[in-house]
Simulated assay, not measured.
Amino acid sequence: MCGFQKKGSKDYKNAIKQAEKSIRKLFKRKVAMGKSINAKELIAKRYGKEGSKEREEFRENAFANYFGEIIKNRRKELNMSQERLAEKVGKKRPYISRIENGEDIRLSNFSLIANALGLSIQLTVE
């Protein structure tokens, strides 16, 4: 499994688990038509059961969006424009925009961008 982390932060698997836990808590508190909404059921209804093709596509898209947010936030922390980041990695500005908006990214390009932003990538075995 591939992990991406900013120095001092949790890896993305832990961040995703925390986000899912927060979503579950939020939906359990919400009331619709007088009854509680179970987050696991809602996610399964919208994106399919765990292990299904639809659910895996949802998770892949969620990770792509998560990575895009990390890249965008770090770029902004550095007061760097998309244009400048694109120049540093030998890409065009629209490519950086697509990545920041959740388009899937090749690992080789992800590594280039992470390095340009002073981020590290960690690979772990499950």
Rank of each mutant, 00 (worst) to 15 (best):
M1L: 11
C2K: 14
F4N: 03
Q5G: 00
Q5D: 03
K6N: 07
K7Q: 13
G8I: 12
G8D: 13
G8E: 08
S9T: 08
S9V: 03
Y12C: 06
Y12M: 09
K13T: 07
K13D: 11
N14H: 01
N14Q: 04
N14K: 09
I16P: 00
A19I: 06
S22Q: 15
I23V: 09
R24V: 14
R24F: 03
K25F: 05
K25T: 09
F27T: 07
F27P: 04
V31L: 11
V31K: 10
A32G: 00
A32N: 05
M33A: 14
G34M: 09
N38W: 13
K40H: 15
E41N: 14
L42G: 03
I43R: 11
A44S: 10
R46D: 14
Y47Q: 03
G48P: 02
K49W: 05
E50K: 13
E50C: 09
E50P: 07
E50A: 13
G51I: 15
S52H: 05
S52W: 11
K53T: 06
E56P: 01
E57P: 06
F58K: 13
E60Q: 13
A62W: 02
F63E: 08
N65P: 03
Y66C: 06
F67P: 11
F67A: 12
G68S: 11
G68K: 09
E69I: 05
I71M: 08
E77H: 06
E77S: 10
M80P: 10
R84C: 10
E87N: 10
E87T: 11
K88S: 04
V89R: 00
V89D: 03
K91F: 12
K91P: 00
R93F: 02
I96G: 01
I96P: 01
S97D: 07
I99D: 04
I99F: 05
N101P: 01
N101C: 07
G102S: 11
G102C: 02
E103G: 02
E103L: 04
D104M: 06
I105D: 08
I105N: 02
R106V: 07
R106Y: 12
F110Y: 11
S111H: 13
L112I: 02
L112W: 12
I113T: 09
I113Y: 05
G118H: 07
G118R: 01
I121V: 15
Q122G: 03
V125W: 08
E126W: 09
